[in-house]
Amino acid sequence: MASLAHSQLGLRNASPTAGVGWAARTVLTTAVLVATSAFAADTLDPNALKRLVHQDCGSCHGLSLKGGLGPDLRSETLEHYDAEVLTGVILDGIPDTAMPPWRPLISEEEAEWIARYLLEPEAQ
């Protein structure tokens, strides 16, 4: 069965290449969000999301999340942040840094799940 994360991420296959206009991107983003909302929160696939965090976030933050080009994301480092703040950073990135917005690839529910996972890895 295709995991939620992967089926959503698979939408990128349809994404146009560089040079596409702002409007087209908005349409694409909307399409992604509509597709996202089709999945209820109870269909989140924790294993797929954990894999995303360690393998893909991990390409900058390290497989074990202890940092790389991007900062340390271990729970003891992040504990003074609220889950909402982290969710916002995941969805919208940090301007003028290498942290990209993940909104085109994941849903808000998935971003919230990832934020909670980073703060309490054991609880998820």
Partner: peptide, 11 residues
């Protein structure tokens, strides 16, 4: 690099 157009998910 076109960050506005295309976020970079892997260097």
């Amino acid at each position: 690099r076109g960050q506005e157009e295309m976020p970079v998910y892997k260097m």
